[in-house]
Amino acid sequence: MKKSLGFLLLSSLLFGCSDKDFSTSSPALAQEIESNYLDGYGANPQVPDDRTLLTVGQSIKDAKGEATLQKINLEEQTINVGDIKLTVKDTKLIHLFPDYSLTDYFHALTHDEEFEFVKLFVEIKNNSNDKVNFAPIAMIETNTGQKITWDQDIYLENLNEEIEGSASKKGNLGFIVDTKTNLEWIEITTSDVFDENEEKVADAKKFRIKF
């Protein structure tokens, strides 16, 4: 994208706020959610596919490792950042024991053999006719005081790149978190929105997700 995400992150310190928080959703909603918005989403090459993880304590194991669901919030939340409509479809705290073949990949972010990460499935819709630059997550801050920037995303699904006019995209973003103390919420700051001329057209937003 034309505007570097490093600049987007710095710019996102000027943001507006949304007061709406998530709350834990019901098992019935969990079953409904499993069969709709995830349709058409391809599995990530680095992280186990968590779409069947809907019950705390549940685990899955595949060639990429073993993942166990620690916490979950399935209540949808939508944030409008200028003409960008950002919808968070699910948020999960997952314990991951990655396969040995992925050790080098994760060592760039942690030297622990197993760790917890927060994962968000998002949809991004550009409601303008113009191409813009936008990152759904520029920074995450936790109730434990940890701050995590966009460049520590473990999924790398190109959600931080420019988006064409009237286009949409969806996928996962994930960030390794310190869970020595209880993780109760995460606070997300989006990037600003920039046009093709690298001019800011909308200020970033900040919102909180509870577990």
Rank of each mutant, 00 (worst) to 15 (best):
E75L: 12
K200M: 15
E198Y: 03
S168T: 11
D99P: 00
L173F: 06
L29D: 11
L102W: 06
I154G: 01
L109W: 09
S26F: 13
M1L: 03
N127D: 13
D153H: 11
I188M: 06
Y155W: 06
T181Y: 05
E123N: 12
K147C: 08
I148Y: 08
T179Q: 08
S101V: 05
D90Y: 08
D83F: 10
T144V: 10
K180V: 12
V118H: 04
A204M: 10
E32A: 14
L156H: 09
Y37G: 00
F175D: 07
L159W: 09
E116Q: 06
F121V: 04
E162L: 05
D19F: 12
N143D: 15
D90P: 00
P45T: 07
G57T: 01
V56P: 00
N133H: 08
I94W: 09
F106V: 08
E75T: 13
K170G: 09
A30F: 14
G171E: 05
C17L: 11
L8R: 04
E161F: 09
V81Y: 02
I154Y: 03
P48E: 14
S35E: 13
W150E: 11
E75R: 07
E123A: 14
T55L: 11
K125V: 15
F22P: 00
T181D: 15
E32C: 02
K169W: 05
L173W: 02
I176G: 01
V118C: 00
F7G: 00
W185F: 15
D99Y: 08
L96E: 10
E123H: 04
Q58E: 14
D151E: 08
V201H: 02
I137D: 03
W150A: 03
L14Q: 10
F97W: 04
D178Q: 08
I84S: 02
N133V: 06
D19R: 03
E75S: 13
L13S: 02
K64A: 04
L120H: 08
D99T: 08
V47H: 04
V132N: 01
L10T: 07
G82Q: 10
Y100Q: 12
L8K: 05
D62Y: 10
D112Q: 14
T179Y: 07
I84A: 02
H111Q: 07
I140D: 04
A30D: 13
P45G: 01
T91M: 13
Y100R: 10
W185V: 02
I176S: 07
L156D: 05
I60R: 01
